[in-house]
Amino acid sequence: MSRRPGPRGFRASIAAALAVLAFYAGLIVSLAWFLDGEVLNRTLFSERSFFSVQLSLMAATVATGLAMTLAIPAAYALSRYDFIGKQAAETVLEFPIIVSPAALGAIILIFFNNPLGEWLQENTIYFVFTFSGIVLAQFVTILGLSVRMLKAAFDEVPVELETVARTLGAGSRHSFFTVTLPLAKNGLIAALILTWAKALGEFGATLMVAGSMAMRTETLPIAIFMRLSNADIEGTVALILILVVIGLSALYAARRLLGRSAHA
């Protein structure tokens, strides 16, 4: 039998929640120690920072778009059908979550050094140390997560509704677009924004595949790494703030969107 927490347990759980908030807020506020107005201003409006922000936003958006294009049908299949290899596919989806991004990036890099990888690069797109490489690294990192989140969103929509739609004369595609997709909308928006935010902050795999070349493959996380490597703490803080502001804005937008559609 489940029991509701008593006043003491209730207070303790609220204290834990506030401690989590204080922990992260404290880390962010501690940046102020190294905040220098002039450096912040110079860094924010430098060409190099603009490049990093632009590159990060573009790569994250393209990677998220590609991941969602593959993840939506894959998640739907995993949610709705039983097929040979389903369990294996579900296990593989955990792979990018349990393996570190650096290891994933190393795997991609090693792949492009085998004959098939070399042939692919020579005959299709060159990935190593390029924008495509950044997108690929982010894509590989976020794909598993986006499939898992989308599958959870589709699982929330009862199969019965699709069956009813089909008895009413709708084909499977029509029932998907008129019943399943609208009902899974909140989950889809959440998956889209969270995977985009994860792609934006991706570092390890990007570093392995695309390297850290200033004004070439310098995404925001790579820029932070490069400035910190050069002991430019004030510049690092300025870039971290940019990343935090973009990430929090995305999450705020997601909450607003989800809140609005939940009350529509």
Binding site: E160, T163, V164, R166, T167, L168, G169, A170, G171, S172
Partner: peptide, 12 residues
């Protein structure tokens, strides 16, 4: 036959 071609009314 596919469900949508059977012309059934269904109340689950």
């Amino acid at each position: 036959w596919p469900i949508e071609h059977r012309r059934l009314g269904y109340v689950p």
